[in-house]
Design a protein around this nucleic acid. Sequence first.
DNA 1: GACTGTGAAGCCATTCACAGCT
DNA 2: AGCTGTGAATGGCTTCACAGTC
Lengths: 216, 216
Amino acid sequence: MKEFKIPEATVSRLSVYSRYLTEVEKQHIVSISSGEIAEGMGGTPAQVRKDLAYFGEFGTRGVGYNVKQLNQEIKNILGLSKKWNMILIGAGNLGSALSQYHGFRERGFEIKGIFDNDLNKVGLMLNGLPIYPINEMADYIEANGISIAIIAVPGDYAQDVADILVETPIKGILNFAPVVLTVPDEVEVRNVDLSVNLEVLSYNIENNLDTMPEEE
Amino acid sequence: MKEFKIPEATVSRLSVYSRYLTEVEKQHIVSISSGEIAEGMGGTPAQVRKDLAYFGEFGTRGVGYNVKQLNQEIKNILGLSKKWNMILIGAGNLGSALSQYHGFRERGFEIKGIFDNDLNKVGLMLNGLPIYPINEMADYIEANGISIAIIAVPGDYAQDVADILVETPIKGILNFAPVVLTVPDEVEVRNVDLSVNLEVLSYNIENNLDTMPEEE
DNA sequence: GACTGTGAAGCCATTCACAGCT
DNA sequence: AGCTGTGAATGGCTTCACAGTC
């Protein structure tokens, strides 16, 4: 009664496929092959087909995939056919940037309210959204059907915020704080770790992958 | 004359280990075991040991690792013993937030200049950094020994910016634009994809991993 | 006794190669 | 002929389990 064991890498790629297909759709292209999708997002045709095959047979042999229909299927798979209500915790620089990021709304994710523990900020508006005090957060989540929280507070506070969140019906956390959060299994956490990304970049540059002159 | 084939996942974890060890160092703890490190960052002891073993024998059997020394080793491995000069392209919300993000400097990554194609912004200062026009970017990179560029421009411009960058001595790009960049192999790209992260979260919530009631 | 370092085993993901439609 | 869907083969990463060292 349930699909099974999809590689996380596949799920990430589906998201990229969908974004690419949305672009292709705008150009009114009707049909697309796995090779063209791969080309458009830096992968291989076989991988595109494998990824899609986990979920069903969306294509037509000898022809390819219907762009619009495939995009819709992928969005359904990813759970994007519904709207997601989110809150943002942290009205600092990063929070401010995130509150204004259009990419979220375009994909069905909407920030409904912002929370901060700085009483100078509470009551102000940030990009059209009210800033509330943290102690109202739990009630707000309950009352407004919020299922995802974005943590954009300094590292030292992130676990405190998470501790409050896990007592609410929140289902997922997108964490921008550079710390590993401890939460119960039923809350899903994704970390966006800016420094880690730079450090991997640093390592790869220093050990120049792909770059080395051919040598026997 | 060269270490070999380190899993990328290992490199990412090294970065997390180092951040954690930096915290532990502050508490003046001298020695730490693989189990304690694993505990502190959500992994397993065996994995911590395996990751470290790719690069050498840093521990003492029966005892553990010297915190300070291990952290130094990891930083060396990651290429953090030198300072990295970066530029930021895009002085919008996200760029503004990134220019102020302290986590970068703490780890040896410094933004030296900001570039934008909006002439109303050029000449202004953003968090103590001057904003230059894009057409000065290539010269600036050459003149200031910049090796990493952070792209924080809208998706439609990101490839244009990348096209300019690849003609310069830039070695790595941290890309925040929600597009797949096409660059030659010798330039290393890392994508920080905000929507992809939310969409994986969405998928995981909908298919609640870990959460399902036990069933035979 | 405690904890590291590591080959071997097991698991997961990607790639290959081809059968099956259109 | 063209392109999908997929079992089988490969490759890579993680976990196990234990020998080695303090």
